[in-house]
Computed example of a mutant assay.
Amino acid sequence: MSAALSRLRAFLAAWPRVALVEVREAKGSTPREAGAWMLVSPGAIFGTIGGGQLEFMAIDRARDMIAAGAPAADILDVPLGPQIGQCCGGRMLVDVALAGEARRAAMLRRIEDEAASRPSVFIFGGGHVGHALAAALALLPLAVTIVETRADQIGDLPEGVEVRLTAVPEEVVRDAPPGSAFLVLTHDHALDFLIVAEALRRADAAYVGMIGSRTKRATFASWYLKEAGGGEGELSRLVCPIGGAEVKDKRPAVIAAMAAAEVMRGLSAS
């Protein structure tokens, strides 16, 4: 079960009366797109339609409907301008409806479907940066897996992050779904090179990144071109060092934040 599905089940179990708020239409500049949704209960919310005054209006309307037990759905047609204190400039149509058993079941199926279609990200190496990456990426709509050769390096991981223990991590690259992202940061440079070489052979990889320095990249490039049979075109897709060179801070959490942005950019472009 995905972390999102687990949280939704817990929310629905805690609140027997909820309303579904969903963006039907979004025109111009808006905080969220059509299809964005949230659930509202008398004392809590699950998800968001973008925040701001529009969301407050939708929450108030949903709670009024819950309190009244209103059977009918409602539609909010809201221009996002100065009159509501939200200056996006677009316009949104938002559906608000009580969520009975059928809608609850539909939302659970929706979360399951969304989880099944999430892009896959594989982190090779469970050290300090690997754990920081897992923590950063677990917050995003991704299927995150840490791949390690050493069981004692796994430790505590965020909810929803999967673990693959294997003596041959490059096989995980070969078996990964199309469009996957690969972040390579093991304890062994030679192992890094083998995994990265395998990832670069996948033309469908959305992102291939390796921790290190410009010197490490140069060493890998020489080996990859001369001994591994790789080409310049494949090599040009390698991001090394991960996280970019603009920020000099090498703390694991900072590297992870910068690399997570790179991964999302790669996935959105693929």
Score class of each variant (00 low, 15 high):
228 A>L: 11
72 A>D: 15
139 L>H: 12
82 P>E: 15
196 V>G: 07
211 I>W: 07
52 G>T: 10
147 V>F: 09
149 T>N: 11
90 G>W: 03
76 L>K: 01
37 W>P: 02
221 A>I: 01
43 G>K: 08
46 F>K: 03
96 V>W: 09
155 G>V: 06
65 M>H: 13
45 I>E: 12
140 L>R: 13
77 D>T: 12
192 D>Q: 05
260 A>V: 07
119 P>R: 00
213 S>A: 03
106 A>H: 12
190 A>N: 09
76 L>Y: 01
128 H>L: 10
14 A>D: 14
57 M>Y: 06
16 P>W: 07
116 A>T: 00
5 L>P: 06
188 D>G: 03
76 L>T: 03
262 E>A: 08
119 P>V: 00
235 L>W: 09
204 D>R: 11
44 A>C: 03
175 D>R: 12
71 P>T: 07
266 G>F: 04
243 G>Q: 02
212 G>L: 04
30 T>N: 10
104 R>Y: 05
31 P>W: 00
148 E>G: 09
5 L>S: 10
111 I>E: 15
17 R>P: 09
188 D>W: 01
79 P>S: 14
102 A>F: 06
220 F>G: 05
112 E>S: 07
112 E>D: 06
126 G>R: 06
89 G>I: 01
248 K>P: 02
39 L>N: 01
215 T>Q: 12
230 G>I: 04
37 W>V: 01
202 R>E: 10
150 R>Q: 11
175 D>W: 03
47 G>N: 01
13 A>H: 11
184 V>W: 00
224 Y>W: 04
169 P>K: 05
57 M>A: 12
64 D>L: 13
116 A>Y: 02
7 R>V: 01
192 D>F: 06
136 A>E: 12
88 C>G: 00
172 V>Q: 08
72 A>P: 08
44 A>N: 08
127 G>H: 04
53 Q>H: 13
204 D>Q: 12
22 E>I: 11
118 R>S: 09
89 G>Y: 03
130 G>P: 11
163 V>M: 04
173 V>L: 05
194 L>V: 14
173 V>R: 02
200 L>F: 11
179 G>E: 00
99 A>P: 04
204 D>G: 11
223 W>E: 10
85 G>N: 08
178 P>I: 00
123 I>P: 06
208 V>T: 09
258 M>D: 10
132 A>M: 03
196 V>S: 07
247 V>E: 13
3 A>G: 09
113 D>Q: 15
235 L>S: 06
85 G>H: 07
259 A>G: 02
262 E>H: 06
18 V>K: 00
91 R>S: 02
3 A>S: 13
41 S>F: 10
61 R>V: 02
16 P>A: 06
168 V>Q: 14
247 V>P: 03
182 F>V: 05
118 R>C: 08
220 F>W: 01
138 A>S: 15
169 P>W: 05
225 L>C: 05
58 A>N: 00
90 G>P: 06
257 A>L: 15
237 R>Q: 01
265 R>K: 15
138 A>V: 11
23 V>A: 01
33 E>T: 13
4 A>I: 13
87 C>G: 00
87 C>Y: 03
